[in-house]
């Protein structure tokens, strides 16, 4: 038997860590507080270490929260945007502190809904990656041509509408003909509603959230 006087688990707030503090700031869209936390963490270690130990885990946690219905898409988007802005000042593109990266490109195939791509770009850039943005409304021909021309190593294809998701298969097959080693990650609403759809496309992986995709990219490339 324990003591008669016990705090219930709810009454003991968890100890505040930089990660919980950052998550709280991001979910509340508090740019100033998030910036202060990340600058302090970066000064105490290094920008790379701050990204590795703080930015990426917190964005992954927010992504998981969204999957479980504990966070909203607007919070995922704003968290990514806020982190992207701060990381771009801590670790500008082309910075010598970045180690060599694979060539990564992202595209919205055949439709014009860009939110998924915007979140993906923000999260990947917050994770320290440089990403080529092919934009939206890209045709299969256009995507094949650009991916081959740029010798892309990891291609991320975002879709919102079912017909666009079904067209990924052709794009993947044609790109693989020229570059069998390319890794392709697909994502977007149709893949969430039909978990078997990803297999049909011939892609290597499905990113169900942006942070999920970040984890897949990290697994494919090794951490920065």
């Amino acid at each position: 038997m324990g003591s008669d006087i016990q705090d219930s688990p709810e009454s003991v707030p968890p100890p505040e860590t930089p990660a919980s503090d950052l998550k709280d700031a991001l979910l509340g869209v508090d740019r100033i507080r998030a910036g202060r936390i990340l600058r302090d963490a970066s000064a105490a270690s290094s920008p790379i270490s701050c990204i590795e130990t703080l930015v990426v885990p917190v964005l992954e946690e927010i992504g998981r929260d969204w999957e479980q219905g504990q966070a909203a898409l607007s919070q995922v988007y704003m968290s990514g945007r806020v982190c992207e802005e701060i990381v771009s000042t801590m670790l500008p593109p082309g910075s010598p502190e970045r180690i060599s990266q694979p060539r990564i490109a992202v595209s919205v195939l055949e439709d014009h809904h860009t939110l998924g791509k915007q979140i993906l770009l923000a999260v990947l850039r917050s994770g320290g990656y440089e990403v080529i943005d092919y934009g939206s409304g890209v045709t299969v021909d256009g995507l094949v041509e650009r991916a081959i021309r740029d010798r892309v190593e990891i291609l991320l294809v975002s879709t919102l509408m079912l017909p666009a998701a079904l067209r990924v298969k052709e794009a993947v097959a044609r790109i693989r003909e020229a570059m069998p080693e390319i890794r392709v990650i697909v994502g977007g609403a149709p893949f969430r509603f039909d978990p078997r759809l990803g297999q049909e496309t011939g892609a290597d992986a499905v990113g169900y959230t942006a942070s999920d995709t970040l984890a897949i990219v990290r697994a494919m490339t090794g951490a920065i």
């Binding site: 607007s74 988007y77 704003m78 945007r81 860009t114 939110l115």
Partner: peptide, 9 residues
């Protein structure tokens, strides 16, 4: 969508 979320906040 992105621009609208930013407007909303």
């Amino acid at each position: 969508f992105g621009a609208y979320i930013e407007l909303l906040y």
